[in-house]
């Protein structure tokens, strides 16, 4: 694949995983079909996630659980050591369909964007608690940062290597998704949303109400001092 800037396009997927022994192998296998390199960051799992993720091209392990934002950053830092142009982030819980990766990368290259967000809001599979939390955080992001993103908590995104310096997040937790949106607005980055399919396997994992409140608190903090 070649970009419109005529450089050979090398894509790398970064997948953070915490206790995902049931899903990670499938996510890695499916993702490998669409990118050149797959990096899995095991964020201190206590189950068999490391064993199940052996098919990843690069496997990194945090010795203790640090949070999704930190794990993703470790993976992206490692990806930058490779000769990659595009970095794709997706969750390790099989929530995202790796088959959507070409859609995201395609939009990034063809529309000459800096970052592309996979938007879950166009399908109705999301549990109502997440749907309400997402709506609330999106409205907050709109009011606080003038964002037009309709799914502020999406973990499925693709961005150019050069974009990372402008969106480099400090949050170690789930707040990182909102922080990226804040930085996209602050740096006037070209962005677009692409509808993606999602499937929710486990109700008690992922963002909780407490996480939602923390994200909102962080957003207020960034608005005032960010």
């Amino acid at each position: 694949m070649c970009s419109n800037r005529m450089k050979p396009l090398k894509t790398c997927a970064v997948i953070p995983a915490f206790n995902e022994e049931k899903n990670i192998a499938n996510v890695v296998n499916e993702t490998k079909k669409h990118v050149d390199t797959v990096i899995v960051v095991d964020d201190g799992s206590t189950d068999k996630t490391p064993k199940e993720a052996t098919k990843a091209d690069i496997f990194l392990k945090h010795i203790v659980n640090m949070g999704k934002g930190f794990a993703l950053q470790t993976g992206v830092e490692r990806a930058l050591m490779e000769d990659v142009n595009v970095i794709v982030c997706l969750d390790g819980d099989n929530q995202h369909n790796p088959g959507d990766i070409p859609k995201l990368v395609g939009a990034l290259i063809e529309q000459d964007m800096d970052i592309v967000f996979g938007s879950r809001s166009l399908n109705g599979d999301m549990p109502w608690v997440l749907r309400f939390g997402n709506w609330w955080l999106c409205k907050s992001a709109q009011m606080l940062f003038g964002s037009s993103i309709s799914d502020s908590q999406t973990g499925f995104k693709a961005f150019r290597k050069e974009t990372y310096d402008k969106i480099r997040w400090k949050s170690k937790s789930y707040s990182m998704d909102s922080e990226i949106i804040m930085r996209v607005g602050k740096n006037n980055l070209r962005h677009v949303q692409v509808p993606i399919k999602t499937h929710y396997h486990c109700g008690h994992k992922g963002t909780t109400i407490i996480d939602g409140l923390r994200i909102f608190r962080d957003m207020l903090f960034w608005r005032m001092w960010g």
Partner: peptide
């Protein structure tokens, strides 16, 4: 801790 965890993760592939 952040520095230690990342260093170990990146150096222990």
């Amino acid at each position: 801790i952040n520095r230690i965890v990342r260093e170990i993760a990146l150096n222990r592939e």
